Amino acid sequence: MADIFDEVEEDLRRARFEQFWKKYWPVVVAVAAVIVIGVGGWRFYEWRQDQQSAAAGGRFEAALRLSRTNSAEAEAQFAAIAADAPSGYRILARLRQATEIGSRDKAAGAQAFDAVAADPAVGALFQDIARIRAGYLLVDSAPPAEIASRVEQLTGAGLPFRHSARELMALAAMRAGDKAGAEKWVQAIQADPETPQGLRGRAELIATVMAGK
């Protein structure tokens, strides 16, 4: 008897499935097609992004090599990469383009870095890098207040670029003859146990120079 009931139950399930399929097969086929097309489209998009990134990487490396011998041409190539490469290489190219500009015109290079620093789309890390790079270009010519406007916000404990920012503040104070200001930033550099050894040595040199004034 159990076998009979099992067969009846199986027949009922088969009948319900056939009814469901007759009623909804177009929907099932359409959903399956959408899934297949969607997965295929995403895979193509990923492949296309990989191809574009690889191409941009090759162009970026070629521009880096060129920068050793022809800064003007490298600058043009970095500008082209910044215009049409995937976002990561666009940002790197903008920074390198600003570096090339700064090698011939420090003020213009600082303006290029300032443009990156003012662009929230590049992300906080690259904005801070741009602020530091602009500071190094201008530290020999700009007043301390201008250097501070770019980098003082980066000097706080635990911030990733605090060491460079503190050095810039110390250099700006030294150049302006601000003994107290230079001493303040030298002490901040020396008090930080994570200060790189090379920077620590440069801070001692600043302190020595200021002690003679």
Rank of each mutant, 00 (worst) to 15 (best):
A203P: 04
I81L: 07
V209P: 02
W25H: 15
D84W: 02
E167P: 04
V36S: 10
L12K: 07
A173H: 01
A173Y: 02
G102S: 09
Y24P: 07
S87K: 14
L64Y: 00
D6A: 13
T99N: 14
G38H: 06
V139T: 04
V27K: 13
R94L: 12
M210E: 00
R166I: 00
R200I: 02
E9D: 14
R48F: 13
V34Q: 04
A121R: 13
R90I: 06
W47N: 11
R175N: 13
A79I: 10
G156Y: 01
P86E: 02
A2F: 10
Q127I: 01
I206S: 00
A15Q: 11
A176T: 04
R175I: 09
A172V: 02
R175L: 10
P144H: 01
D140S: 13
L159D: 13
A82T: 05
R166V: 00
A182H: 03
S164T: 03
V28S: 06
P86Y: 04
G181R: 03
E146R: 06
M210S: 01
D105V: 07
I101F: 10
G57Y: 06
R96D: 14
G123S: 05
L125S: 09
P86C: 09
A118T: 02
G158I: 02
V39Q: 13
A121V: 07
A115R: 07
F5S: 11
Y45L: 13
I35V: 15
L154Y: 02
T208A: 15
K22G: 15
L92A: 15
G88W: 12
D84R: 09
V34D: 07
F17S: 11
T195D: 03
A117G: 08
V209C: 00
Q51W: 12
I189S: 11
I101Q: 11
A15G: 04
K106V: 10
G38C: 10
N70I: 00
E152G: 02
G41Y: 15
A98K: 09
A188F: 01
S87F: 13
A112G: 02
V209L: 09
V27Y: 14
V186P: 02
T69M: 07
